[in-house]
């Protein structure tokens, strides 16, 4: 449920977009972007999407974003976004950086509890998922469609960490013992996106 709330959160300010008039370039103004793209990693290349809501001031943008990141283990990163545009109010290259937390979104592939196949009753802990850090940095190009809206494309490097603990009963040659083993994954990807800003 928390995951769905995270996904909905950035959309809320968008309802106010229509209410806003054009702002002068040197005033703080509302900014949002909606992007689709691919995460190109060593393993494979899934699609990704993200939404950023924030403010724009002169050549700078800052905001909060949420993304859907299906690479390796599906997760929902929530992050702080900052960007610097070379030019203000016209077509421009830009650079950006994101930093935040990646929330794993389990579809049952790593069950939380052991389940008795006969009774269906849940038993001891099995997997515990942990949030990991998330970061991204890249460059892009913004093509103004009108004075406010623009088409954007960007490319960058994206990193997310995924960790989980697994409890297993193992046979050590003489007896069965319960141990906790930890897994930690560093996923490094290149990201390419297209989108638009409001």
């Amino acid at each position: 449920m928390k995951i769905y709330l995270l996904l909905l959160l950035p959309w809320l300010p968008a309802f106010a977009t229509a209410q806003q008039d054009k702002k002068l370039a040197n005033k703080i103004s509302y900014a949002s972007s909606y992007e689709l793209g691919i995460l190109a990693g060593k393993a494979y290349t899934p699609f990704t999407a993200r939404i950023i809501q924030g403010v724009r001031y002169q050549n700078y943008e800052a905001g909060i974003g949420v993304a859907l990141d299906p690479y390796a283990f599906r997760s929902v990163p929530v992050f702080i976004h900052v960007a610097y545009h070379l030019y203000n109010g016209r077509n421009t290259p830009y650079a950006y950086g994101d930093a935040g937390i990646s929330f794993p979104w389990n579809n049952g592939a790593l069950p939380e509890k052991y389940t008795d196949p006969r009774s269906g009753q849940q038993g001891e802990d099995w997997h515990i998922l942990h949030n990991g850090v998330y970061g991204e940095a890249g460059i892009g190009y913004k093509i103004m469609l009108n004075k406010r809206n623009a088409f954007i494309m960007n490319a960058g490097y994206s990193y997310k960490k995924f960790k989980y603990d697994e409890f297993v009963n193992i046979w050590n040659g003489n007896e069965s013992i319960r141990i906790k083993q930890g897994y930690s994954f560093d996923y490094n990807r290149l990201v390419f996106r297209l989108g638009f800003t409001l």
Binding site: A40, K42, Y157, Q181, G182, Y183, S184, F185, N188, R189
Partner: peptide, 11 residues
Amino acid sequence: PGCVKDRGMKR
């Protein structure tokens, strides 16, 4: 993409 590599550790 061939330039990036994933890494996993198990404790």
